[in-house]
Amino acid sequence: MREPTSGQTIEFQGLTKRFGRVQAVTDLTVSVVPGRVTGFLGPNGAGKTTSLRCALGLVAPSEGRALIGGRPYADLPHPAHVVGAVLESSSFHPGRSARNHLRWVAQASELPPARVDEVLAATGMTTYARRRVGGFSLGMRQRLGLAQALLGDPGVLILDEPANGLDPAGIAWLRGFLRALAAEGRTVLVSSHVLGEVQQTVDDIVVVAAGRLVAHGPLSDLEAAQGSVLVRSPERTRLAELLDGSASTVETVEADGLRLRGLSPADVGRLAHEHHVELHELALQPPDLERLFLDLTSGTEARP
């Protein structure tokens, strides 16, 4: 494969989109940078797909702009070399084979025919290249859509619910594949309505609800802020007294445990050592991001 087009920043600048009386997106301002996988998260009807369609020039914003590398999609000189996209509504002619479908797309986009077999191999579709698309499962269609998006070897990937229809092995493959694309310096934007589905993949998150931005930043920052420390000790009461005022939150867990927020495992271990408190377990607990996601998006009305 040739060296990929450099990743470009995706920018939403005050993006607003109305469909009649329904406001699907309201003043969305956020940037998605190269070299990282960004999860675009929100419940169904949150405005994710509308925002992506604006970025791809399929829907005109009512206000604001959606830019790729500082330009609207329509102004990109060779869009297939810059942006590859998989939309939830992607469709294929059921009578064509996977290879013939990609050949047709490559010819229409003035892309070299050799790219067809390269992307089939990259997405694990070589075995199914001669099969008609009409007999494909949803997961196979997702892989074919991803192969189509990669035909131009673009630096920007915009993927709408790409894990839909994939089995556990397929989801694990997709995670590794997206991480590899980002490691090459590409910009990877992945929409989903299930945080747990992308938690092991993304570097950054953008969370929207009812068309409005509710959270944005590195996933690691969110995990650090929302994570906790689990400690178990036969001297739980004494340890709790020593920790009083040090941790932002102290909760009891079963007979001998404490769940702490605001302290690291090293902080707790140091304190226990200094006061000769016996510990049976000390571990960093990942945050319940599914619960956090529900908290962030609760109290909002779904949009069409």
Rank of each mutant, 00 (worst) to 15 (best):
100 N>I: 04
83 V>D: 02
72 P>D: 15
283 A>P: 02
265 P>Q: 02
288 D>R: 10
133 V>N: 01
213 L>K: 14
37 V>L: 11
156 V>I: 05
227 G>P: 04
240 A>W: 01
221 D>F: 00
16 T>M: 05
256 D>V: 08
235 E>G: 11
132 R>H: 11
222 L>G: 05
39 G>I: 00
119 V>Q: 01
188 V>R: 07
104 W>Y: 15
138 L>E: 02
31 S>Y: 07
183 A>L: 03
250 V>C: 08
167 D>S: 10
211 G>W: 04
50 T>L: 05
186 R>Q: 10
48 K>L: 08
158 I>D: 05
295 D>G: 09
6 S>K: 14
276 H>Y: 08
140 M>G: 02
24 A>S: 10
5 T>V: 12
84 G>R: 10
212 R>Q: 13
79 P>C: 10
260 L>W: 02
77 P>M: 07
65 R>K: 14
218 P>Q: 09
290 E>H: 12
11 E>A: 14
203 D>T: 07
256 D>W: 09
179 R>Y: 02
140 M>Q: 08
224 A>D: 13
209 A>L: 01
50 T>N: 02
31 S>R: 15
214 V>C: 06
30 V>N: 00
256 D>I: 02
251 E>G: 07
89 S>Q: 14
35 G>W: 06
259 R>Q: 11
195 L>G: 04
238 R>D: 12
213 L>V: 09
92 F>Y: 15
247 A>E: 04
29 T>D: 10
128 Y>Q: 15
292 L>D: 06
262 G>W: 01
17 K>N: 00
67 L>C: 09
146 L>T: 04
161 E>Q: 11
72 P>N: 12
177 F>C: 09
2 R>T: 15
38 T>R: 09
224 A>E: 13
219 L>K: 08
209 A>D: 00
252 T>S: 14
199 Q>D: 14
69 G>K: 06
113 P>H: 08
158 I>P: 01
12 F>V: 04
71 R>E: 14
14 G>Y: 10
25 V>F: 07
124 G>H: 00
281 E>D: 14
262 G>Q: 03
24 A>L: 03
230 L>M: 11
47 G>H: 07
193 H>W: 07
170 G>S: 10
279 L>F: 05
148 Q>C: 11
83 V>G: 03
206 V>Y: 02
206 V>I: 15
134 G>I: 07
199 Q>R: 15
204 D>P: 04
177 F>D: 01
241 E>S: 14
155 G>F: 05
154 P>F: 09
28 L>A: 09
109 S>H: 13
148 Q>G: 08
164 N>L: 10
119 V>Y: 03
128 Y>M: 13
65 R>G: 04
275 H>I: 02
42 G>V: 02
244 D>T: 13
100 N>Y: 10
269 G>P: 00
68 I>K: 06
43 P>M: 04
228 S>R: 13
259 R>Y: 02
251 E>L: 14
185 G>F: 05
92 F>S: 06
162 P>W: 01
295 D>M: 00
168 P>G: 09
148 Q>V: 05
241 E>V: 12
289 L>H: 03
202 V>S: 06
82 V>D: 06
277 V>S: 03
288 D>G: 03
133 V>C: 05
117 D>R: 11
29 T>Y: 08
138 L>F: 01
284 L>G: 11
228 S>P: 01
2 R>M: 12
111 L>I: 11
283 A>W: 02
154 P>I: 10
258 L>Y: 07
45 G>H: 03
68 I>V: 15
